[in-house]
Design a protein around this nucleic acid. Structure first.
Lengths: 364, 364
DNA sequence: ATTAGCACTCTGCAATTTAGAGTGCTAACA
DNA sequence: TGTTAGCACTCTAAATTGCAGAGTGCTAAT
């Protein structure tokens, strides 16, 4: 909308925003006049502020109070922040222990970020875009039951218990094992077609039901649905530290959103930033937020890249008057470190462990 | 604490409590006088109330307000409730779909209870007290990696990726498989001793490291630690519906507790009621609560029994002025239905599925 | 173009008032 | 002796009022 801002207006706006982020209270002309190297009187500032308000960058909550930034104001500020290469990179390296288990890394990252920023942080594990099957192992549990273990590239493992109508012996299991591995190994989701499936079922004869079950497991493993993308969350309760979010109505809404994996998955999917755009870091301010329930918050996301087609997303959720600078710097730092750790290939993703009667533990 | 209450005092106390549970506000003598079939004037009630207060069953928040129940008062009321066989069992049967997956049942149960009661509900999966090993399956991933699949009674499945120093071929894997299964199958945790382990390591020769890894996985599978007992949580945000819990300080404390699996595990472990005592249902009122952070709440727990040594615990957390009646009735109903569904043996626990790079998904 | 000065507005807070609910006690009553 | 009506008293919660402080917009002077 309209003209660009001149240098002075820019500086004033920035000062207003920074002060507001610190104090959380509308900032008046006097404050800016005093605590700025502009050497202007409060009256001048007032005039400029009046202009800025007219242009939509700041808002007066009520006649004769100070100004607060509008979403448009924030946006200008944040864009600046993201584009600027952090020359003043006094950001500490994040304390991330390198371990052999992807899930441990993710937990660490999400915890460190939540702690550093004091906002709610979530991270989605890498999604394997074009994953292929490594091998399948059928084992006999008893007469009427099989255990299928499906292993995909990147060592994702999935167990599937299969109930049989007809009993089965070791010999037949061996045959099925061969059949499945011959047909499926190395295939991606796109390469497995109905033709192959039908052919396998025919060959399996009486045990064709097994084929169906295994195929299902394979599908879930090499192309997990939204619900299966694991999401780690940390510091959800940090939101209570910000009065503007802590009233029970909003807090309930937020906690519900944080507790609902589907909602989170949607959010993270929606926010996955275009890799090209500005550093891979994107900010959603207030109403720009990807899901309705957090429209009182801002979200800053970054995607981390592990080469080899795997990538995931981190999102930090805080109040509109979030310390964007700190957040963006932390995310930049994270990207740098993740690159350094995993930059070349997927080698370090090994060592995964799946488990259990129950595959998704706590849930809110 | 002296004398027992006479019939009339009992009735008055009960009326006070019930009214308070409904309204949440201190109840006065007039209210009781009017809405009770006792046909007593408010003045009489006042005298009785004065007695009840002296005996510690009710409390006057400030001079000249109505009375509210003390923890002692609640206790009397709740004890009554639990012991009384619910003759007036108009409780609807809980809508629980029988499925073949334990985890789905648990999810359903926890959701239904949270919905029915509108309190926070959590459930711990069955702990397998004396579980034994069914079989072990080693598979080759590549030169330097093995996948061990450990299956225990009740079809708990655990995957463990094993990194090797020395490369290994199919023949050797077969040998290890035989070795492990011969030694370990059918054993409980107590029956696996250091002697056996040492012997196996010797026989495994250069690949003794594999034995250690497998043993670790076995231990975790047939005797999961506290952190591994899966806990399902539902309706955590229901607490926001109760003003006495919804202020940000308390809500934060509660949500933190709910989000911390360890805390929950501790709570559920602590509350696991003595099976014998009163129906297996136990109530913890206010300060009796098992963990510090929920001392403003009451907790009602029940353990469900699946025969065959497996049992788990349900806990419902709500405000002190929780609708104990509804909660207790729901839990009784649950116990009945669980018994009906699973009463005989563990047959229905089959069909479990484990999975994934990441073994514990969302976390708060 | 900038600034000093002044009248005006709005908020947040504390003090005050008021209405209502409930009690405790006393005296009357069955 | 147990029950009840009546009344003075207490306490809370909510509404009302009165400031003090911060900030603005405008005008006139520099």
């Amino acid at each position: 909308m309209g003209e660009d801002l001149d240098e002075r207006k820019r500086k004033i706006l920035k000062a207003i925003i920074q002060t507001y982020l610190e104090t959380g209270e509308p900032v008046g002309s006097r404050t800016i006049s005093k605590y700025t190297d502009l050497n202007l009187s409060s009256a001048t500032i007032r005039n400029e502020m009046s202009d800025l308000e007219e242009m939509g960058y700041i808002i007066q909550p009520h006649t004769s109070s100070g100004r607060i930034p509008s979403d448009k104001g924030y946006r200008l500020y944040v864009n600046d922040l993201i584009q600027k290469t952090n020359q003043d990179a006094e950001v500490q390296t994040l304390m991330i222990q390198k371990t052999d288990r992807m899930e441990k890394i993710l937990k660490q990252v999400v915890d460190v970020l939540a702690q550093n920023t004091n906002y709610a942080t979530m991270i989605a594990g890498p999604s394997y875009h074009q994953n292929s099957l490594k091998f399948i192992q059928l084992s006999r549990i008893n007469d009427k039951q099989l255990l299928a273990v499906v292993v995909a590239q990147g060592n994702l493992v999935k167990n599937q218990m299969i109930d049989l109508k007809e009993s089965i012996d070791e010999d037949e299991i061996l045959k099925l094992n061969l059949l499945l591995n011959n047909e499926l190994n190395g295939k991606t989701i796109g390469e497995i077609n109905l033709d192959m499936i039908t052919r396998m079922k025919q060959q399996a004869g009486i045990h064709s039901e097994v084929i169906s079950s295994v195929i299902d497991a394979v599908a879930e493993t090499i192309q997990p649905g939204d619900e299966d993308v694991p999401i780690y969350l940390s510091g959800a309760t940090n939101i209570f530290d910000y009065p503007e979010l802590a009233d029970s109505k909003k807090a309930k809404e937020l906690m519900t959103a944080f507790g609902d994996k589907k909602e989170l998955a949607e959010m993270i999917r929606e926010t996955a930033p275009g890799e090209e755009s500005s550093n891979g870091i994107t900010a959603y301010i207030g109403n720009e937020s990807p899901i309705q329930s957090i429209k009182d918050c801002s979200v800053v996301t970054a995607n981390y890249n592990l080469g080899n087609g795997m990538k995931g997303t981190v999102a930090i959720v805080g109040p509109r008057r979030m310390d964007y600078k700190k957040v963006v710097e932390n995310l930049k730092q994270l990207k740098t470190q993740m690159n350094a750790l995993f930059g070349n290939g997927d080698a370090k993703l090994e060592g995964s462990t799946g488990q259990d009667v129950i595959d998704s533990h706590s849930e809110n």
